[in-house]
Design a protein around this nucleic acid. Structure first.
Lengths: 187, 187
DNA sequence: TCGAGTCTGCCTAACGACAGATAGGGAAGC
DNA sequence: GCTTCCCTATCTGTCGTTAGGCAGACTCGA
Protein backbone atom coordinates (compact mmCIF):
# COMPACT_ATOMS: atom_id res chain seq x y z
CA UNK A 1 0.00 0.00 0.00
CA UNK A 2 1.22 3.49 -0.81
CA UNK A 3 0.59 5.48 2.37
CA UNK A 4 1.78 2.58 4.48
CA UNK A 5 5.25 2.69 2.93
CA UNK A 6 5.71 6.31 3.89
CA UNK A 7 4.50 5.59 7.40
CA UNK A 8 6.79 2.58 7.67
CA UNK A 9 9.74 4.74 6.64
CA UNK A 10 8.81 7.39 9.20
CA UNK A 11 8.50 4.86 11.98
CA UNK A 12 11.75 3.09 11.14
CA UNK A 13 13.60 6.38 10.78
CA UNK A 14 12.32 7.51 14.14
CA UNK A 15 13.64 4.40 15.82
CA UNK A 16 17.00 4.77 14.14
CA UNK A 17 17.35 8.43 15.07
CA UNK A 18 16.49 7.62 18.68
CA UNK A 19 19.28 5.05 18.71
CA UNK A 20 21.95 6.55 16.43
CA UNK A 21 20.93 10.12 15.83
CA UNK A 22 20.27 12.08 12.68
CA UNK A 23 23.86 11.56 11.62
CA UNK A 24 23.49 7.83 12.08
CA UNK A 25 20.47 7.70 9.84
CA UNK A 26 21.43 6.17 6.49
CA UNK A 27 19.19 5.92 3.44
CA UNK A 28 20.59 2.53 2.57
CA UNK A 29 20.15 0.99 6.00
CA UNK A 30 16.75 2.58 6.39
CA UNK A 31 15.62 1.26 3.01
CA UNK A 32 16.86 -2.22 3.82
CA UNK A 33 14.92 -2.19 7.05
CA UNK A 34 11.73 -1.11 5.30
CA UNK A 35 12.24 -3.59 2.48
CA UNK A 36 12.82 -1.21 -0.45
CA UNK A 37 15.84 0.38 -2.12
CA UNK A 38 17.52 3.58 -1.02
CA UNK A 39 16.56 5.51 -4.15
CA UNK A 40 12.90 4.71 -3.56
CA UNK A 41 12.85 6.77 -0.40
CA UNK A 42 13.25 9.86 -2.56
CA UNK A 43 9.79 9.21 -3.89
CA UNK A 44 8.46 9.96 -0.39
CA UNK A 45 11.01 12.46 0.91
CA UNK A 46 12.89 14.91 -1.27
CA UNK A 47 16.03 14.90 0.87
CA UNK A 48 17.44 13.67 4.12
CA UNK A 49 16.67 17.05 5.67
CA UNK A 50 13.04 16.65 4.61
CA UNK A 51 12.90 13.19 6.10
CA UNK A 52 14.50 14.35 9.32
CA UNK A 53 12.08 17.24 9.65
CA UNK A 54 9.11 14.96 8.95
CA UNK A 55 10.30 12.45 11.55
CA UNK A 56 10.77 15.15 14.17
CA UNK A 57 7.43 16.74 13.38
CA UNK A 58 5.58 13.43 13.58
CA UNK A 59 7.37 12.76 16.84
CA UNK A 60 6.09 15.85 18.62
CA UNK A 61 2.65 15.51 17.06
CA UNK A 62 2.35 11.99 18.42
CA UNK A 63 3.66 13.13 21.78
CA UNK A 64 1.18 15.99 21.97
CA UNK A 65 -1.67 13.60 21.29
CA UNK A 66 -0.37 11.09 23.80
CA UNK A 67 0.01 13.68 26.55
CA UNK A 68 -3.46 15.04 25.97
CA UNK A 69 -4.81 11.51 26.06
CA UNK A 70 -3.24 10.92 29.46
CA UNK A 71 -4.87 14.02 30.86
CA UNK A 72 -8.22 13.15 29.30
CA UNK A 73 -8.16 9.56 30.53
CA UNK A 74 -7.07 10.06 34.11
CA UNK A 75 -8.67 13.45 34.59
CA UNK A 76 -6.29 13.85 37.51
CA UNK A 77 -3.51 16.40 36.92
CA UNK A 78 -1.40 15.22 39.84
CA UNK A 79 -1.56 11.67 38.57
CA UNK A 80 -0.50 12.98 35.16
CA UNK A 81 2.63 14.49 36.66
CA UNK A 82 3.45 11.18 38.29
CA UNK A 83 3.01 9.35 35.01
CA UNK A 84 4.92 11.92 32.94
CA UNK A 85 8.40 10.34 33.18
CA UNK A 86 7.02 7.05 31.85
CA UNK A 87 7.19 8.27 28.26
CA UNK A 88 10.93 8.71 28.62
CA UNK A 89 11.24 5.45 30.48
CA UNK A 90 9.69 3.52 27.64
CA UNK A 91 12.33 4.73 25.19
CA UNK A 92 15.02 3.33 27.44
CA UNK A 93 13.18 0.03 27.74
CA UNK A 94 12.87 -0.09 23.97
CA UNK A 95 16.49 -0.79 23.10
CA UNK A 96 18.04 1.84 25.37
CA UNK A 97 16.77 4.54 23.03
CA UNK A 98 16.88 8.25 23.69
CA UNK A 99 14.26 10.89 23.22
CA UNK A 100 14.55 12.04 19.63
CA UNK A 101 14.57 15.64 20.73
CA UNK A 102 17.45 15.08 23.15
CA UNK A 103 19.51 13.40 20.48
CA UNK A 104 18.84 16.20 18.07
CA UNK A 105 19.62 18.80 20.71
CA UNK A 106 23.03 17.22 21.06
CA UNK A 107 23.44 17.13 17.28
CA UNK A 108 22.03 20.64 17.04
CA UNK A 109 25.02 22.16 15.26
CA UNK A 110 24.93 19.51 12.53
CA UNK A 111 21.23 19.72 11.73
CA UNK A 112 19.52 21.40 8.78
CA UNK A 113 17.51 24.35 9.96
CA UNK A 114 14.15 22.72 9.29
CA UNK A 115 15.12 19.76 11.45
CA UNK A 116 16.28 22.03 14.27
CA UNK A 117 12.93 23.76 14.26
CA UNK A 118 10.87 20.58 14.41
CA UNK A 119 13.07 19.11 17.11
CA UNK A 120 12.36 22.14 19.28
CA UNK A 121 8.67 21.45 18.79
CA UNK A 122 8.91 18.41 21.01
CA UNK A 123 10.29 20.41 23.90
CA UNK A 124 7.67 23.10 23.37
CA UNK A 125 4.87 20.55 23.45
CA UNK A 126 6.19 18.99 26.65
CA UNK A 127 6.72 22.31 28.40
CA UNK A 128 3.30 23.63 27.42
CA UNK A 129 1.57 20.48 28.63
CA UNK A 130 3.55 20.38 31.89
CA UNK A 131 2.84 24.04 32.57
CA UNK A 132 -0.88 23.49 32.07
CA UNK A 133 -0.99 20.38 34.22
CA UNK A 134 1.11 21.97 36.97
CA UNK A 135 -1.41 24.76 37.28
CA UNK A 136 -4.33 22.33 37.22
CA UNK A 137 -2.69 20.33 39.97
CA UNK A 138 -2.11 23.44 42.01
CA UNK A 139 1.59 22.64 42.07
CA UNK A 140 2.61 25.94 40.54
CA UNK A 141 1.39 29.50 40.20
CA UNK A 142 0.27 30.31 36.65
CA UNK A 143 3.02 32.90 36.37
CA UNK A 144 5.91 30.59 37.23
CA UNK A 145 4.52 27.43 35.72
CA UNK A 146 6.43 27.66 32.45
CA UNK A 147 9.77 27.94 34.20
CA UNK A 148 8.91 25.03 36.46
CA UNK A 149 7.74 22.99 33.47
CA UNK A 150 11.00 23.62 31.66
CA UNK A 151 12.94 22.56 34.73
CA UNK A 152 11.05 19.29 34.91
CA UNK A 153 11.46 18.62 31.21
CA UNK A 154 15.19 19.35 31.25
CA UNK A 155 15.78 17.29 34.37
CA UNK A 156 13.88 14.27 33.07
CA UNK A 157 15.77 14.54 29.77
CA UNK A 158 19.01 14.57 31.70
CA UNK A 159 17.97 11.53 33.69
CA UNK A 160 17.23 9.65 30.48
CA UNK A 161 20.60 10.63 29.05
CA UNK A 162 22.41 9.45 32.16
CA UNK A 163 20.54 6.15 32.30
CA UNK A 164 21.27 5.53 28.63
CA UNK A 165 24.99 5.96 29.20
CA UNK A 166 24.78 3.12 31.71
CA UNK A 167 22.32 1.03 29.72
CA UNK A 168 20.39 0.79 32.96
CA UNK A 169 16.73 1.77 33.24
CA UNK A 170 16.84 1.49 37.03
CA UNK A 171 19.18 4.48 37.09
CA UNK A 172 16.40 6.46 35.47
CA UNK A 173 13.94 5.33 38.13
CA UNK A 174 16.34 6.29 40.90
CA UNK A 175 16.88 9.73 39.41
CA UNK A 176 13.15 10.38 39.09
CA UNK A 177 12.76 9.31 42.70
CA UNK A 178 15.48 11.77 43.70
CA UNK A 179 13.70 14.52 41.81
CA UNK A 180 10.59 13.76 43.82
CA UNK A 181 12.49 13.66 47.09
CA UNK A 182 14.09 17.02 46.41
CA UNK A 183 10.79 18.66 45.48
CA UNK A 184 11.40 19.19 41.76
CA UNK A 185 8.68 16.70 40.87
CA UNK A 186 5.39 16.70 42.82
CA UNK A 187 4.74 13.57 44.85
CA UNK B 1 57.82 20.48 19.61
CA UNK B 2 56.86 16.85 19.89
CA UNK B 3 54.62 16.70 22.96
CA UNK B 4 52.93 19.93 21.99
CA UNK B 5 51.55 18.48 18.76
CA UNK B 6 49.84 15.68 20.63
CA UNK B 7 48.41 18.12 23.14
CA UNK B 8 47.22 20.40 20.37
CA UNK B 9 45.45 17.48 18.72
CA UNK B 10 43.81 16.49 22.00
CA UNK B 11 42.61 20.01 22.66
CA UNK B 12 41.25 20.55 19.15
CA UNK B 13 39.57 17.14 19.16
CA UNK B 14 37.90 17.91 22.45
CA UNK B 15 36.44 21.12 21.09
CA UNK B 16 35.20 19.37 17.99
CA UNK B 17 33.59 16.53 19.92
CA UNK B 18 31.85 19.01 22.20
CA UNK B 19 30.40 20.72 19.14
CA UNK B 20 29.80 17.86 16.68
CA UNK B 21 30.22 14.66 18.63
CA UNK B 22 32.49 11.69 18.18
CA UNK B 23 30.81 10.94 14.88
CA UNK B 24 31.49 14.47 13.72
CA UNK B 25 35.17 14.18 14.47
CA UNK B 26 37.11 13.85 11.22
CA UNK B 27 40.82 13.15 10.90
CA UNK B 28 41.10 15.45 7.91
CA UNK B 29 39.34 18.39 9.48
CA UNK B 30 41.14 17.87 12.76
CA UNK B 31 44.50 17.72 11.04
CA UNK B 32 43.76 20.87 9.06
CA UNK B 33 42.88 22.67 12.26
CA UNK B 34 46.10 21.58 13.92
CA UNK B 35 48.15 22.36 10.83
CA UNK B 36 49.31 18.90 9.82
CA UNK B 37 48.03 16.13 7.53
CA UNK B 38 45.50 13.48 8.46
CA UNK B 39 47.94 10.61 8.22
CA UNK B 40 50.26 12.32 10.69
CA UNK B 41 47.73 11.94 13.47
CA UNK B 42 48.37 8.21 13.36
CA UNK B 43 51.82 8.91 14.65
CA UNK B 44 50.18 10.03 17.91
CA UNK B 45 47.02 7.94 18.04
CA UNK B 46 46.73 4.46 16.61
CA UNK B 47 43.07 4.81 15.65
CA UNK B 48 40.06 7.06 16.00
CA UNK B 49 38.89 4.94 18.91
CA UNK B 50 42.22 5.53 20.63
CA UNK B 51 41.98 9.25 20.03
CA UNK B 52 38.39 9.35 21.28
CA UNK B 53 39.28 7.47 24.43
CA UNK B 54 42.27 9.74 25.06
CA UNK B 55 40.15 12.84 24.60
CA UNK B 56 37.47 11.58 26.96
CA UNK B 57 40.02 10.52 29.53
CA UNK B 58 41.81 13.84 29.46
CA UNK B 59 38.43 15.54 29.76
CA UNK B 60 37.49 13.90 33.03
CA UNK B 61 41.02 14.17 34.38
CA UNK B 62 40.98 17.91 33.79
CA UNK B 63 37.53 18.16 35.30
CA UNK B 64 38.54 16.24 38.40
CA UNK B 65 41.47 18.59 38.92
CA UNK B 66 39.32 21.64 38.32
CA UNK B 67 36.64 20.55 40.77
CA UNK B 68 39.19 19.78 43.45
CA UNK B 69 40.74 23.17 42.87
CA UNK B 70 37.41 24.89 43.44
CA UNK B 71 36.96 23.14 46.74
CA UNK B 72 40.53 23.86 47.79
CA UNK B 73 40.34 27.53 46.85
CA UNK B 74 37.01 28.49 48.33
CA UNK B 75 37.11 26.06 51.22
CA UNK B 76 33.37 26.57 51.41
CA UNK B 77 31.34 23.51 50.29
CA UNK B 78 28.09 25.45 49.95
CA UNK B 79 29.79 28.01 47.75
CA UNK B 80 31.15 25.11 45.67
CA UNK B 81 27.64 23.87 45.04
CA UNK B 82 26.60 27.30 43.91
CA UNK B 83 29.53 27.49 41.54
CA UNK B 84 29.13 23.96 40.20
CA UNK B 85 26.87 24.77 37.22
CA UNK B 86 29.40 27.30 35.95
CA UNK B 87 31.53 24.60 34.35
CA UNK B 88 28.60 23.64 32.17
CA UNK B 89 27.73 27.24 31.53
CA UNK B 90 31.16 27.95 30.16
CA UNK B 91 30.79 25.27 27.48
CA UNK B 92 27.65 26.98 26.26
CA UNK B 93 29.35 30.34 26.23
CA UNK B 94 32.21 28.83 24.26
CA UNK B 95 30.45 28.32 20.95
CA UNK B 96 27.29 26.74 22.33
CA UNK B 97 29.24 23.60 23.09
CA UNK B 98 27.98 20.63 25.05
CA UNK B 99 29.60 18.64 27.79
CA UNK B 100 31.66 15.99 26.06
CA UNK B 101 30.16 13.32 28.29
CA UNK B 102 26.60 14.31 27.41
CA UNK B 103 27.34 14.18 23.72
CA UNK B 104 28.94 10.81 24.08
CA UNK B 105 26.07 9.55 26.20
CA UNK B 106 23.76 10.40 23.33
CA UNK B 107 26.10 8.71 20.87
CA UNK B 108 26.57 5.84 23.28
CA UNK B 109 25.42 3.10 20.90
CA UNK B 110 27.90 4.20 18.22
CA UNK B 111 30.98 4.41 20.41
CA UNK B 112 33.88 1.98 20.68
CA UNK B 113 33.88 0.32 24.06
CA UNK B 114 37.00 2.13 25.28
CA UNK B 115 35.41 5.48 24.50
CA UNK B 116 32.21 4.54 26.32
CA UNK B 117 34.21 3.69 29.39
CA UNK B 118 36.17 6.93 29.48
CA UNK B 119 33.04 8.98 28.84
CA UNK B 120 31.43 7.45 31.91
CA UNK B 121 34.46 8.56 33.88
CA UNK B 122 33.36 12.18 33.61
CA UNK B 123 30.00 11.44 35.18
CA UNK B 124 31.67 9.39 37.90
CA UNK B 125 34.05 12.21 38.75
CA UNK B 126 31.23 14.73 38.94
CA UNK B 127 28.98 12.51 41.05
CA UNK B 128 31.77 11.60 43.46
CA UNK B 129 32.75 15.24 43.93
CA UNK B 130 29.16 16.39 44.35
CA UNK B 131 28.45 13.64 46.87
CA UNK B 132 31.48 14.64 48.90
CA UNK B 133 30.69 18.34 48.82
CA UNK B 134 27.01 17.76 49.63
CA UNK B 135 28.00 15.96 52.80
CA UNK B 136 30.55 18.64 53.70
CA UNK B 137 27.90 21.30 53.21
CA UNK B 138 25.47 19.38 55.38
CA UNK B 139 23.03 19.36 52.48
CA UNK B 140 22.72 15.58 52.37
CA UNK B 141 23.08 12.59 54.65
CA UNK B 142 26.17 10.52 53.77
CA UNK B 143 23.93 7.59 52.85
CA UNK B 144 21.78 9.40 50.31
CA UNK B 145 24.42 11.78 49.02
CA UNK B 146 25.32 9.71 45.95
CA UNK B 147 21.73 9.60 44.74
CA UNK B 148 21.34 13.32 45.32
CA UNK B 149 24.62 13.98 43.52
CA UNK B 150 23.49 11.96 40.53
CA UNK B 151 20.22 13.89 40.43
CA UNK B 152 22.07 17.20 40.39
CA UNK B 153 24.46 16.04 37.71
CA UNK B 154 21.71 14.68 35.48
CA UNK B 155 19.55 17.76 35.91
CA UNK B 156 22.37 20.18 35.13
CA UNK B 157 23.28 18.10 32.08
CA UNK B 158 19.70 18.28 30.93
CA UNK B 159 19.65 22.03 31.42
CA UNK B 160 22.74 22.38 29.29
CA UNK B 161 21.22 20.22 26.58
CA UNK B 162 18.04 22.29 26.55
CA UNK B 163 19.90 25.59 26.45
CA UNK B 164 22.05 24.35 23.59
CA UNK B 165 19.00 23.47 21.52
CA UNK B 166 17.97 27.12 21.82
CA UNK B 167 21.48 28.57 21.47
CA UNK B 168 20.61 30.60 24.52
CA UNK B 169 22.75 30.60 27.65
CA UNK B 170 20.12 32.52 29.59
CA UNK B 171 17.85 29.47 29.33
CA UNK B 172 20.51 27.57 31.24
CA UNK B 173 20.61 30.23 33.93
CA UNK B 174 16.83 30.17 34.27
CA UNK B 175 16.80 26.39 34.60
CA UNK B 176 19.47 26.43 37.28
CA UNK B 177 17.46 29.05 39.12
CA UNK B 178 14.39 26.83 38.90
CA UNK B 179 16.39 23.92 40.31
CA UNK B 180 17.32 26.10 43.25
CA UNK B 181 13.75 27.30 43.75
CA UNK B 182 12.45 23.74 43.76
CA UNK B 183 15.06 22.55 46.24
CA UNK B 184 17.09 20.30 43.96
CA UNK B 185 20.10 22.61 44.24
CA UNK B 186 21.03 24.13 47.62
CA UNK B 187 20.70 27.89 47.80
C1' DT C 1 85.31 13.56 16.71
C1' DC C 2 83.02 11.54 13.19
C1' DG C 3 80.19 8.54 10.62
C1' DA C 4 76.47 5.05 10.85
C1' DG C 5 72.34 3.72 12.36
C1' DT C 6 67.87 4.64 14.58
C1' DC C 7 63.96 7.22 16.11
C1' DT C 8 60.65 10.89 15.50
C1' DG C 9 57.41 13.50 13.11
C1' DC C 10 55.48 14.52 9.19
C1' DC C 11 54.55 13.85 4.28
C1' DT C 12 52.14 12.07 -0.50
C1' DA C 13 49.26 8.79 -2.49
C1' DA C 14 46.07 5.64 -2.43
C1' DC C 15 42.73 1.92 -0.72
C1' DG C 16 37.88 0.24 0.10
C1' DA C 17 33.68 1.43 2.25
C1' DC C 18 29.91 4.22 2.58
C1' DA C 19 27.37 8.70 2.37
C1' DG C 20 23.47 11.52 -0.06
C1' DA C 21 21.78 12.22 -4.35
C1' DT C 22 20.33 11.75 -9.50
C1' DA C 23 18.93 9.83 -14.13
C1' DG C 24 16.12 7.05 -16.32
C1' DG C 25 13.32 2.91 -16.88
C1' DG C 26 9.60 -0.53 -15.84
C1' DA C 27 5.25 -2.16 -13.98
C1' DA C 28 0.74 -1.49 -11.77
C1' DG C 29 -3.67 1.15 -11.23
C1' DC C 30 -6.83 5.03 -11.88
C1' DG D 1 -2.35 7.99 -20.84
C1' DC D 2 -0.83 9.68 -16.70
C1' DT D 3 0.40 9.05 -12.02
C1' DT D 4 2.36 6.21 -8.38
C1' DC D 5 5.87 3.44 -6.71
C1' DC D 6 9.89 1.14 -6.96
C1' DC D 7 13.90 -0.38 -9.51
C1' DT D 8 19.16 -0.50 -11.43
C1' DA D 9 23.14 1.98 -12.12
C1' DT D 10 25.96 5.53 -11.19
C1' DC D 11 27.95 10.10 -9.63
C1' DT D 12 30.61 12.77 -6.34
C1' DG D 13 32.35 13.35 -1.95
C1' DT D 14 34.10 11.98 2.53
C1' DC D 15 35.34 8.63 5.76
C1' DG D 16 39.14 5.85 8.53
C1' DT D 17 43.14 3.69 7.42
C1' DT D 18 47.59 2.06 5.32
C1' DA D 19 52.05 1.84 2.68
C1' DG D 20 56.07 3.86 2.02
C1' DG D 21 59.25 7.71 1.90
C1' DC D 22 61.88 11.87 3.53
C1' DA D 23 64.26 15.09 6.65
C1' DG D 24 66.02 16.32 11.03
C1' DA D 25 67.66 14.98 15.67
C1' DC D 26 69.27 11.58 18.58
C1' DT D 27 72.73 7.67 20.15
C1' DC D 28 76.83 5.19 20.01
C1' DG D 29 80.91 2.60 18.53
C1' DA D 30 85.39 3.31 16.08
Amino acid sequence: MSTSAKETILAAARKTVQAHGYGGLSYRDLAAEVGIKAASIYHHFASKADLGAAVARRYWEDTAAELDAILAETGDPLRCLQLYPNTFRRSLEDGNRLCLCSFMSAEYANLPEAVQREAQGFADVNVAWLAKVLVLAGAAEPMGSEARARAIFAAVSGAQLYARSRSDVSQFDDLIESYRASGLLPT
